[in-house]
Design a protein around this nucleic acid. Sequence first.
DNA 1: AAGGCGTCCCTAAACGTTTAGCAATAAACG
DNA 2: CGTTTATTGCTAAACGTTTAGGGACGCCTT
Lengths: 363, 363
Amino acid sequence: MPKKPTLVDVSAASGLSVYTVSRALNNAGGVSKASREAVLRTAREMGYVPNRAAQQLRRNTSASVTVMTASTSNYYYIDMMSGVQQVLRASGRSAVVADLATDGVYSAEAENAIVQDIIQARTAGVVSTLILSLDNVRLLESWGIPVVFVDSSPPKGVRDAASVTTDNYAASLAVGNHLGEHGYEDWALLMYPSRWSTRAERQRGITAAAANTGARLTVIECENDPDSAARALSAHLAANGSKPPRAVIAGNNPLLRGALDVLHGHGIRVPDEVALVAFDEFPWAPFVNPPMTVLNEDSKHIGEIAATILTRLIDEQAETAGNGEATPRYRPEDRREVGSNLIIRRSCGCVPLNLEQSDKGAL
Amino acid sequence: MPKKPTLVDVSAASGLSVYTVSRALNNAGGVSKASREAVLRTAREMGYVPNRAAQQLRRNTSASVTVMTASTSNYYYIDMMSGVQQVLRASGRSAVVADLATDGVYSAEAENAIVQDIIQARTAGVVSTLILSLDNVRLLESWGIPVVFVDSSPPKGVRDAASVTTDNYAASLAVGNHLGEHGYEDWALLMYPSRWSTRAERQRGITAAAANTGARLTVIECENDPDSAARALSAHLAANGSKPPRAVIAGNNPLLRGALDVLHGHGIRVPDEVALVAFDEFPWAPFVNPPMTVLNEDSKHIGEIAATILTRLIDEQAETAGNGEATPRYRPEDRREVGSNLIIRRSCGCVPLNLEQSDKGAL
DNA sequence: AAGGCGTCCCTAAACGTTTAGCAATAAACG
DNA sequence: CGTTTATTGCTAAACGTTTAGGGACGCCTT
């Protein structure tokens, strides 16, 4: 591989100084049209491509943002990413995803390692779908790296931070109330661990709805993967003899897979014997047997909002970086809540008349 | 934000030279145990974190690999990523995904932009699930960036390149033959554009199977997204009056969603009226109505193999980089083909006895 | 003609690492 | 004790950019 041209080489070849070449390539002022064109031409001819490591070192800024997630296999994150990407692209930044636990098992070391990695790369900002440890939040703050929590809250002890969440309490209330309208009186809520901060509000909402409608609720906790969910639900069924709950609420997509697995496996008819509803819309929901009634968070929109907030924080950070000022203070409007809606299909026991139409929309 | 310590600061604080500090932090030789410990302690106390941009600039190597995909919403890529990540982690590298077209529409500019980005970052290597343009392959080669194509072949004109693919011809033959065994005689193959190189072999296999079993085959081409697939299939049904094909083969996951949408929409019973099979296993396949018979590529395994090959190429590249030698030549064993298997559920018309069991395995 | 002002460009010093080329010291050996 | 050898550490020069601080030149204003 022949040695690749650097800025200095372009400078030599074009007869202009590195200053001029640099400014020309960056579309900065102070360069005549003629010089600029000469530079661009030579650079193209030589096949010059700037070295980002050098730029980053010198400029002391990075253009990339890290999105921290666990369980990428959840469709939720994919949509969110696309929202994030879209907004960041507008300001010339890009996003990379750091997955803490592809398989649903989480470890504090993995979290620390990724935070360390983020700092090493002097990443511009972070979007986190997890509660981070207080230490890590402090650490990022001390390095001037702003964090936006999405569908998760900052750990206790952090006074102010940016976050965009759905109103999970209201949403869960809606889910529960719908079950109540069906007259179901015995519910089971299948839930992932509370490390995912959505759990608290979701559980609170379902609990409140159960109280409202006079239903009996048992919460079944499991790890955040289908196998664990299946085991937990099976155990629950076995423990209660042959009397399954009238309605099962799956806390998210992977858990829903586990639930479907045991319900189908036991030959239990859904929704006739056991109604089933779940959190988080997903592309296959209309096609599952039976079509799933789910709570739909507009995760792409959430991603967009998160990226917008983060962009502002990063820009402010850049401004105040030099003069020893404190990290920009978060504003009240940096805590956003977005709505959600219940998509009613058949798994809850409803028989929508316009099935075809509603499926089309959700495709 | 107070200024952050650099290597020089650690050096000053510990009373040892930057040389010693650097070597101590990198676990390199030539440092006494006592010095090393002193350095590590001071570094920890000061909260020192190395600046990766500076390291990369100086070392002239990067530890990250880019995976180029289009349509991340396909589960296929997610599993592959996890295989890639896992192997790379072992050699201290990491992978980022670059998505050319979240929504299934592809553009040559997007491809060029991402390749440019890869070069700017002096990325260590590339895994591509797409055919890249000849120019881009040449460009990457000229920068000494090895590429492994997964489930896609290099563009025509590239003599040798690394690739790991499934034997799509044999796989498709198996799919087709299974339909033949059911006695279906009128097939429709719903296919994405040929930019995804798997298309050619898949279509060839299905075509051969149709010939073998005396079936009539029509190929319906559409873009790589559910909406386009739905439109194309609808148009086909309309054109053929009320006589739908006896079997539909969906070229991949997004296309399958489109197909299910129109079949359900038209109230066509699957598999009784129209049998349906698809390429690429996905986690929801057992739960779809009806449970889907799919071709299962072990995409995680594919990712592992790709990453293994890429790792070797990167290491060789590093060795020969200095001495002006050519990019390491690809070896014959850098073209790998892995097997695949047909997962039979119900959508093809089969009624498996051990349904429960098979679903469990595919969960 | 002198001064002021803009425009364009240059030189040289950073940014935070790694590492080649030595130097000092101690240990081992005759 | 002198010589060799191993170990440990230092100094200073890179890596490829950006940019502060000026200088040269031409044009306008008075």
